[in-house]
Design a binder for these strands. Structure first.
Length: 405
DNA sequence: TCTGGGGTCCTAGGACCC
DNA sequence: TCTGGGGTCCTAGGACCC
């Protein structure tokens, strides 16, 4: 039997902001994505008391809580805080799996002789987290990840919930299926149509019936209903070795836009960001996907598989822009996205041909500068022409090649 | 002041080959 | 004298998570 902890940081982005700015403390506030359009990413507990929730639109939040303070997200701040937390978690076990920037699974099986039973571990972990970061978290303790995650959700904020194996049937019996991680609104609806509302009912439904309706997922659903989950905790070291499947960026435009040249400029900017991340991770990929979202929120994608892998912004852009040119825009565009999949690890090697070599080194030099001074300190001529990135230090800089963009 | 941005996995269907 | 079936690759889209 395993002992798995699920740590869920409470209102993470909001708490980090409150920690760094005393004026925000004990006030209803929320972290938001962009200034103009978007949704609430993380409301503080003071704001939640007014009914403000993640995903809510600004005007809705303002209506519920007129005094709410909206703070733009600062991802560097949150990833720094996340690294700080990882260091604390790793004191208890090397088996730490990062589930998202503010959640982790810890396998503490066999750590009892060093740190006490799982509840004692959760208590010391929470104490050390508070002392060193002034952040609180909820902890679920259970024999597997599914139940640990369920537990951390049951007592927020700042709770500890222990689910013992012999309690599982009772916990699951009346639990709504939607409370399980992996069962979203759609599955909930389909299950309800079959007369299945609780995990107890799900666990008693024959596998055949579930498989007939949901395919391979049926077996997994049956197990979930019973609280069974064999998925192991994958340590950070192992996660690093695992290859990413895709990397992409997207952005909602400040205003819906029907102007192709403007869309292309945003696209180039996104391709540069994707290329930079690919190179930093040592990846290149063979499939380029373009995603568009129209004014009415209809979202679709078109992709193209290439003969060779790419990881340079301009190569990604050449493909994405060609896809865009082949499309008829039926409505103004709300969101533009690009992603590269079919990833493979790149061997570090010096390219054979002079012009290719020049491009690789140029890109590396740009990466270094941008890593040090922030995104788009140095960028391609077309982007600089937009004249909206204040910190561009070399607006006339252009790649060595003779390609026109 | 209509609805963010980053991912993963799965499925269905067409093209193509043997 | 008219059309089976398996396998692979590729694209599009949907469901789910945070």
């Amino acid at each position: 039997m395993k002992n798995i902890l699920h740590i869920d940081m409470n209102a993470f982005f909001a708490s980090v902001e409150q920690r760094s700015a005393p004026v925000l403390r004990e006030r209803p506030m929320a972290v938001v994505g962009s200034e103009r359009r978007g949704v609430i990413l993380s409301p503080s507990y003071e704001a939640r008391a007014f009914g403000v929730k993640t995903g809510m639109m600004y005007h809705e939040a303002r209506r519920m809580c007129p005094d709410i303070v909206l703070v733009p997200a600062d991802s560097a701040k949150y990833s720094h805080a996340c690294k700080q937390l990882i260091r604390i978690w790793e004191r208890f076990t090397p088996l730490v799996e990062l589930f998202s920037i503010d959640e982790a699974f810890l396998d503490v099986t066999g750590c009892e002789s060093l740190f006490g039973d799982p509840v004692q571990i959760a208590v010391s972990l929470k104490e050390q987290t508070w002392e060193e970061t002034k952040l609180t978290c909820s902890v679920g303790i259970a024999p597997n990840k599914l139940l640990a995650k369920l537990g951390s959700d049951m007592l927020k904020p700042d709770g500890i919930v222990l689910i013992l194996p012999h309690d599982v049937p009772e916990v699951m019996e009346d639990l709504p299926v939607k409370d399980l991680c992996g069962i979203g609104p759609n599955l909930t609806r389909h299950l309800a149509a079959m007369g299945i509302r609780t995990c107890g009912e799900l666990g008693r439904t024959p596998i055949d019936k579930l498989t007939a309706r949901f395919g391979v997922l049926g077996e997994r659903l049956h197990e979930m209903g019973l609280g069974i989950d064999d998925d192991p905790v994958v340590s950070l070291a192992e996660q690093d070795e695992e290859d990413a499947r895709s990397m992409g960026h997207s952005m909602t435009l400040e205003q819906d836009c029907g102007d192709r040249s403007l869309i292309e400029r945003h696209l180039l900017q996104l391709c540069e960001k994707v290329g930079r991340r690919l190179r930093r991770g040592g990846y290149a990929g063979r499939t380029v996907s373009l995603t568009l979202r129209y004014s009415d929120f209809h979202t679709f994608s078109r992709q193209q598989r290439l003969r060779r892998s790419v990881n340079h912004g301009l190569d990604i852009y050449a493909t994405a822009a060609a896809i865009l040119q082949g499309l008829t825009l039926e409505q103004p565009v709300r969101l533009v996205g690009v992603s590269v999949s079919g990833l493979e690890r790149q061997m570090a090697q010096v390219p054979l041909f002079e012009d290719e070599r020049k491009r690789t080194f140029t890109a590396e030099a740009m990466d270094e500068i941008n890593d040090r001074y922030g995104d788009f300190t140095v960028t391609w001529g077309t982007l600089a022409a937009r004249n909206q990135h204040e910190r561009i230090i070399s607006p006339s800089w252009r790649p060595g090649g003779d390609r026109e963009y």
